[in-house]
């Protein structure tokens, strides 16, 4: 099997687990919804402030959802020695990184669809002004977040792991995604999509760095 085939096989396995267990749908989405309502309660009810902060709140919800999803991507590998099985399988270690990254990205994109609709409804974010720019920002940002999560999610399975370690590591590393995603979303919803190009470029650069470096170094995390 080629690297692509192996990656797709792992992504399919993880997505099958998600479809049967419904963790993203059953836990992460309700969590993101609760978070957005909490944001509304803490910043509202003035409509202007909520509309101004909406892009930031949207991306914070996405960021936290990505941390939970990446934690989940390796959680089930910790059970029944599944991770050892994955290590012994005759596949490239990079395929595990790419495959899990794809699975996390697909779940995140589905979650984002719901989150965007929620934010648009709750905080008056106008989606129809420049939908293509918005989709591009979310898509590129998701790839970067999935790459970071797929790379470091495995650390959360350490024997002495603490719940806070993964967000402590992921949130500062993902600063560029947060900033660029929020800026691009704000420009797209304010009718200034033409100025969002450099932010989309930054997201693309982040994706390239993390996907390529992740592919190179992921094997070192798994080695036993």
């Amino acid at each position: 099997m080629t690297l692509v085939g192996q990656s797709v096989a792992i992504a399919a396995k993880d997505l099958r687990i998600e479809v049967r267990g419904r963790y993203a749908l059953g836990s992460v989405l309700p969590f993101a919804g609760t978070l957005l309502v909490a944001f509304g309660l803490s910043l509202g009810p003035g409509r202007t402030l909520l509309a101004e902060t909406a892009p930031g709140l949207l991306w914070l919800a996405v960021l936290f959802a990505s941390v939970l999803s990446s934690r989940r991507a390796y959680e089930h590998e910790g059970e029944d020695g599944a991770l050892e099985g994955l290590l012994l399988a005759p596949i490239d270690k990079a395929a595990v990184f790419i495959g899990k990254g794809i699975a996390i990205a697909v779940q995140l994109l589905a979650l984002e669809l719901a989150i965007v609709l929620l934010v648009s409804g709750l905080f008056d974010l106008s989606l129809a002004v420049a939908p293509l720019t918005l989709v591009a920002a979310l898509f590129l940002g998701t790839i970067g977040l999935a790459a970071v999560g797929s790379l470091f999610g495995v650390l959360a399975e350490a024997p002495r792991a603490r719940e806070a370690v993964l967000p402590l590591l992921v949130l500062p590393l993902a600063t560029p995604v947060l900033i660029a995603g929020v800026r691009a979303t704000a420009l797209a919803t304010a009718g200034r999509a033409g100025e969002a190009g450099s932010w989309l470029g930054l997201l693309l650069a982040f994706d390239l760095v993390f996907v390529s470096v992740g592919t190179l170094v992921f094997g070192f995390l798994l080695e036993e």
Binding site: L151, P172, L202, V213, V217
Partner: peptide
Amino acid sequence: VVGFLDVPVSYLSVTWW
């Protein structure tokens, strides 16, 4: 390794921001 490579991208994003 990854943390150090993140620094230039962060700097760029914060400068533009």
